[in-house]
Structure formats: structure tokens, C-alpha cells
């Protein structure tokens, strides 16, 4: 499609000034009328609920007994593109010993939430807050699962209830290929 010939015709100087002024005045008038409209907030609650995915601060969910849902299978560690998740498995407890995330490396992409098959890790709507340089940026389970903003320190409830029989099978699976969960 060839563009219209008129677009290449140059207006005169004063005509140009008139056009721009009239545009600006009409815009100002419309903005003035906004005073009489009802105010629309920046991000109202209904807008927030319309989202289907969040990419805010990470949270580890808890099960009904109040402990973390995570079984330490290491899928999120395998999938993370920036290698910021560090899981240490406790053989005696047969559960997660330590779960550390380097918040300065995390890109909040959502692949770990997608990878977890038991809804153990989730992105919340909370925004990761800035901090001074000397604070500890390698956060552990106490911040990820039991910080104050998650139900006053009790943690987010997971959508999935894990069967105790499945738990042994999950851990066997992990113990078999321990050491193969690192990124290539």
C-alpha cells in the first residue's frame, strides 16, 4: 500500500502552530473534565484478581501440618536458568535440610513454579523489596516460607496434599540420581 500523497505535503508555519495548539487545548480540556469523573486506582483489587500468573517474591508453601511441602526432589534446581537455587538434602530426616535462593541472581521467570509437581514453590504478588548492600541476600527457609507477610508467619497453604506413601517414593527417586540434578 502506497502511503497517501497528502502526508508528504508540508503545512505552513502558522497553520502548524494552530494545529498543535488546538490539539493541546482539547487535551487539556479533557484532562480537566477528569476531575469530575470517579477516580480509578492504579491497581485495584479487581484488576489484581484478573491476573493468571504472578512474578513477584518467591514463597515455599506449607502442608496442613505446618511444615514445608517441599520434598527436596531438585526439579526446580535443575530447571532454573540462572542457577540461584541451592537445596541440601538431609538423609537422616529424609527431607529438605536447607533451601537457599540467591535473590540477587533470581530473574523471577516462573520456571521453578511451573516445574514443581506438588505446588511446593510459588510466586506471590508481593514485590521483592530493595535493601542495603550488606544485608544477607541468600535467603533461607525462614524467609521464604515463614515471613510475616505470608499469613502472619504461618505460611501459604499448598493446593496439593501429599500422600505419606508418595513421600517415600519421591525421596527414593531423589536418592537414586543424587548428583544428576545440576544444570548441564
Amino acid at each position: 500500500m502506497i502511503l497517501k500523497r497528502e502526508l508528504y505535503q508540508r503545512h505552513g508555519y502558522f497553520k502548524g502552530i494552530l494545529i498543535v495548539l488546538s490539539f493541546q487545548v482539547s487535551r487539556l480540556f479533557k484532562l480537566f473534565l477528569n476531575i469530575f469523573k470517579k477516580g480509578e486506582g492504579r491497581l485495584t483489587v479487581s484488576e489484581d484478581q484478573k491476573r493468571s500468573q504472578y512474578k513477584g517474591m518467591l514463597a515455599l508453601t506449607v502442608n496442613k501440618q505446618g511444615e514445608i511441602q517441599c520434598t527436596g526432589c531438585g526439579l526446580c534446581q535443575a530447571v532454573c536458568p540462572s542457577d540461584c537455587i541451592d537445596i541440601q538434602f538431609d538423609k537422616k530426616k529424609k527431607g529438605v535440610g536447607a533451601f537457599n535462593i540467591d535473590l540477587l541472581r533470581c530473574v523471577f521467570c516462573g520456571l521453578c513454579e511451573e516445574a514443581c509437581p506438588i505446588d511446593g514453590i510459588r510466586h506471590t504478588a508481593e514485590i521483592p523489596s530493595p535493601g542495603h548492600f550488606e544485608q544477607n541476600w541468600n535467603v533461607g527457609i525462614s524467609t521464604l516460607a515463614f515471613r510475616k507477610s505470608l499469613n502472619d508467619g504461618k505460611g501459604l497453604l499448598s493446593k496439593y496434599t501429599l500422600d505419606p506413601k508418595d513421600l517415600d517414593q519421591e525421596n527414593e527417586h531423589f536418592l537414586e540420581d543424587e548428583g544428576q540434578t545440576s544444570n548441564a
Binding site: 540477587l104 533470581c106 530473574v107 523471577f108 541476600w137
Partner: peptide, 11 residues
């Protein structure tokens, strides 16, 4: 550096 703002990109 004085202050870090995490996020990619931060909101």
C-alpha cells in the same frame, strides 16, 4: 554499591 534493587527488571 549502596543499595541493591532485585528483580528482572524491578517493578
Amino acid at each position: 554499591v549502596d543499595v541493591y534493587i532485585p528483580g528482572c527488571p524491578p517493578t
